[in-house]
Design a protein around this nucleic acid. Structure first.
Lengths: 252, 252
DNA sequence: CAGTGGTCTAGACCACGAT
DNA sequence: TCGTGGTCTAGACCACTGG
């Protein structure tokens, strides 16, 4: 260590800084290959682990992704748009445009890993549905895959007393889906509450969504209410944050 | 490597798995100290870097945080609740309860790092406000600190032609804030669009929000529209995801 | 097959925090 | 002061990808 020490910033962070700046300045475009471990070792005269650490910083920031045997590449962000309130989202609020561009949806959607069954409600689920603990609930679990890329995990909980004998307890709920069947049963959902949070994925989520390192997940917990204010469904969704932009339109 | 190899899972991931399971089973509660590098080295008979790598997995998952000189500890999650649509959020949708608990807000809020000025709109800002590129815009930048912990960065953009000479161009906008002043000027915002995404923080964001490793940020871009459908404000917010749950209520 | 990233070892020195 | 995590070196073998 003869020259450096200018500033107390660790070597691996200095290297990461330079690469990050280069990416953000456009010197490396999305999809471009970045200098690899060997490049950094010679360029900066550091050990292998130090070069690796620098690259791992960028990966954990979601800026780069490694492809084994190929190299390290700048990541892209081309999200889908999920409209939380379709009724209001269209219309004449058109002078200003969206902040983040999003792909149009004329792609191949596959629903996957469907599991339907009945279990005892966890404390959280019972609370959200206004049921006593351990009440029986209908559980519908699915995965959504868009153009071969998994983007969304969905688990829906409904009071089992409501869904007895209804198509809701079968994999195919029929035209209009679960909400149409609830309406048939006299429990039409008219009000919704969505709670949103964000965190790093568990190993299981990371695997089911094929997530890159440094990709958070968005959690949406949607509760559906009837006109009487009774909760009839809790839908817990797990989204690949690199695939989604959420949008909510509302009036003052 | 005499015994292992049972399963091709790398050592550091196996160690991380065991610790993760122990955390999720409650063997280690939030705030508890986890086995440190030296503990793992002797327990699993691995090299220092391997133990470090196992712990770094948990940190990047947001499950653990390291305190230099002290140890590695299980993280906590006690979020604030941000209601996107206050008018609807109250009321009679009360049978079902929130999925995630949230602290009540009787805490000390400080607004910080206030900067107000005028610049040329970036392409993204101009697009959102329906302005020609490089149009002059009023910029209001702030940081919100709750009980000493920074939780939110906010940057607001308004067409400079609207705000000329108004208190909006000063640090203190007066009672009712920016929206009240816009109303005074005959540009009352009546409709809002919020776009939400999520990603890992930049170094600057991480520093301004004092984020732990493994903590994503939530980005909210809110556009405010007048009754005529003209956008009058773009507010870009950056939230510490470990401090927030977002909530949206709406009707079918 | 050559090059890449993935994993792992066995050392070292440092800055920091608790005692 | 002593243990902790933070940084760094200089090697090694492996699995995978590409031409």
């Amino acid at each position: 260590m003869t020259d450096q020490d200018s500033g107390r910033r660790p070597k691996y962070q200095r290297i990461a800084d330079e690469l990050r700046t280069a990416i953000q300045s456009g010197a490396f475009a999305p999809g471009d290959r970045l200098p690899g471990e060997n490049d950094l070792m010679t360029t900066y005269d550091v050990a292998r682990m130090t070069a690796r650490q620098a690259l791992s910083v960028l990966r954990n920031e979601g800026l780069a992704e490694a492809r084994k045997g190929a190299g390290v590449f700048v990541r892209t962000f081309r999200p889908l748009r999920r409209r939380g309130i379709p009724r209001l989202a269209q219309g004449h609020w058109g002078t200003g445009h969206s902040v983040w561009s999003a792909d149009v949806e004329d792609r191949a959607l596959v629903v996957d890993q469907i599991e339907v069954g009945e279990t005892a409600a966890t404390a959280r689920v019972a609370e959200a549905l206004g049921l006593p603990p351990d009440s029986p609930v209908c559980v519908r679990s699915r995965r959504f895959v868009l153009d071969g890329k998994p983007v969304l995990l969905s688990v829906s909980y409904l009071p089992a007393t409501l869904t007895q004998g209804s198509p809701i307890t079968t994999p195919d709920t029929g035209p209009g889906g679960t909400y149409a069947r609830l309406t048939d049963l006299g429990h039409e959902p008219v009000h919704f509450r969505e709670e949103i949070r964000c965190r790093m994925p568990t190993a299981a989520e990371s695997s089911r969504l094929s997530l890159e390192l440094g990709t958070p997940v968005i959690l949406i917990a949607r509760t559906a209410f009837t006109a009487k204010g009774a909760p009839v469904e809790l839908n817990e969704m797990t989204l690949d944050s690199s695939s989604y932009v959420l949008e909510y339109d509302f009036d003052a």
